[in-house]
Design a protein around this nucleic acid. Structure first.
Lengths: 140, 140
DNA sequence: GGCACAGTATCAAAGCTTTGATAGATATCA
DNA sequence: TGATATCTATCAAAGCTTTGATACTGTGCC
């Protein structure tokens, strides 16, 4: 309580992220996806056969969290999972055609938002924001 | 997939917020609190007797989400809830002494993080970041 | 070969969040 | 007074996230 709320830069970042997530959620919802599901599919399309653990690392969540996301994607028929050739302890994950289609729809909507954000700044301002956010993250 | 990941400013904000939340979570954990619980207590200490619905609006979450947070705070003896004088449909929420103590501990740890972040920038840079984030939020 | 280490998957518990639906109380206006 | 609108709380369902614990498999070193 020593620090006024207005002074806390963290609050601003949190609010910005909150608004961003709300907008993204609404966007990918048109494809029947949640944001974590969309994020997973986005990594998956460039890494066919990736393991759940590797996918979790890529998405910056725990393997347990990714397991739940994959379970739901599997239930909706957007991915397939099967045993790996020689790593018997691994499960290969692949996109289905339905998954590719959902990702295409969701990404189109998500890009609209990113584009709207990017267009709100000049190239110099974008660089500036990138730099400030990098130092923000670094400071933590 | 038309837009490279590096170009998406949203990703940078998300990553910054993710790191911030991880740090804050570790900080308030020393007081036995979660981040949402800490946020609720922070509003509560300045608004004694506030209703759960108003608290939810203040914290930018749904009343249902706040109900769960309050249930857990109640279970840990950090708050008290009782019927309102004339609004029989309202429940007044108040901090207990244990709640005040937990908040004091948690806030001290949280302020350390905010201070570390603030110190990473010059006053001009802080203003700049504030402005850019405001426009970021506005653009969405 | 045997052993420790790292990677993978999974179960369980606790907690946060949303949307949707229900029900009771208060306030406003015709 | 009565209808409408609004605010309150709460139940239910679905989903995401974390920490902690368990077990199996492959790799590298002795």
């Amino acid at each position: 309580m020593d620090m006024p709320a207005e002074e806390r830069l963290g609050l601003l970042v949190k609010r910005a992220e909150q608004r961003l997530m709300a907008a993204k959620h609404a966007a990918v919802k048109t494809a029947g996806l949640t944001v974590p599901q969309y994020a997973a599919l986005l990594v998956l399309v460039d890494n066919p056969g990736i393991s759940a653990a590797a996918l979790a690392r890529e998405c910056l969540v725990t393997p347990q969290a990714m397991t739940v996301v994959l379970k739901n994607l599997l239930g909706h028929g957007l991915i397939e999972r099967g045993p790996h050739q020689w790593h018997r302890t691994m499960l290969e994950t692949h996109l289905t055609d339905a998954g590719r289609e959902a990702l295409r729809t969701a990404d189109a909507a998500a890009v609209v938002i990113e584009r709207r954000i990017a267009d709100a700044f000049t190239p110099d301002e974008r660089d500036s924001l990138r730099d400030l956010l990098a130092r923000f993250t670094q400071a933590i």
